[in-house]
């Protein structure tokens, strides 16, 4: 398989935790500009797959390439983030003791060393970027509120907003609509489709309404490898998929 024109290329990736194979020769390819939904039962290895891509977990074997040529297994979290991979955690993780604005400010693309941060002054351009993102994630009226005071769904959005501020090439979004109302879920689907217009995106989600809403190719993971791949209708008609969901 050729790596060119792929944003993410995983081949034969395996990782074990104390003898338990969480990822089992997983191969997955994402084209540039593609959005992909990943489904799979609990413990399928979806989050672990993201851990491997973002440098949190080192694979025992296999290839992980970003942008066709960068070997991600040789880099750590901060380097990978700077190359352009952003990640939303399964459990929304924002800086609770900071305001919404400060959360976004820390995420904004820019130099990441200590001294510039120490003498940083907010520029007009930055303020405008933050305005834009606040508009997109619909938190404009909460700008100066502490992130701790946001609802669960709003924290999810703030975290997505932080990803946008980071302006990555590839976004890994782990369970973005957990804890959201139906209206919020629809809104999030719209937001992600918007983002997918100029980013590559991987979305992990259990909510099938939401996955259907996204209308993209679906990969079903099971026991650390790909069980089925195709349209949502194709995947959900796949007997093996039905089995792993029903047969437990």
């Amino acid at each position: 398989m050729s790596k060119s024109n792929t944003i993410l290329y995983l081949d034969g990736v395996s990782v074990s935790f104390d003898g338990f194979r969480a990822i089992n020769s997983l191969s997955l390819v994402l084209d540039k500009g593609e959005m992909r939904a990943i489904i799979g039962p609990n413990g399928a290895g979806k989050t672990t797959m993201m851990d491997i891509v973002t440098g949190k977990t080192r694979p025992d074997e296999g290839e992980v390439f970003f942008d066709g040529e960068i070997d991600l297994t040789r880099h750590d979290e901060a380097e990978i983030a700077m190359m352009g991979i952003g990640r939303k955690f399964q459990k929304p993780t924002v800086f609770e003791s900071h305001t919404i604005e400060e959360n976004l400010m820390l995420a904004l693309k820019g130099p990441r060393s200590i001294f510039p941060a120490l003498f940083h002054r907010r520029s007009v351009a930055e303020a405008r970027q933050i305005d834009d993102i606040l508009g997109i994630i619909r938190l404009g009226s909460r700008r100066y509120d502490l992130a701790a005071n946001l609802s669960h769904g709003q924290k999810q959005w703030l975290e997505i907003g932080m990803l946008l501020a980071q302006d990555p090439k590839l976004l890994l979004v782990d369970e973005p609509v957990a804890g959201m109302t139906d209206a919020e879920t629809e809104e999030t689907a719209r937001l992600l489709k918007d983002i997918a217009r100029d980013h590559s995106v991987i979305v992990v989600e259990h909510d099938m309404h939401f996955v259907r809403e996204l209308g993209v190719k679906v990969t079903c993971l099971h026991e650390g490898s790909v069980l089925s791949e195709g349209t949502l209708d194709f995947v959900s008609a796949d007997e093996r998929v039905v089995e792993v969901y029903l047969g437990r």
């Binding site: 973002t54 949190k56 979290e77 901060a78 983030a81 700077m82 952003g86 990640r87 955690f89 993780t93 924002v94 800086f95 609770e96 003791s97 900071h98 400060e102 400010m105 820390l106 995420a107 990441r112 941060a117 932080m162 980071q166």
Partner: peptide, 18 residues
Amino acid sequence: KLLMAVRDAESRTRFLGW
């Protein structure tokens, strides 16, 4: 702000590139 962010959610700061 970053210092407190590291205190509250270290891994988040790493995945933001800090």
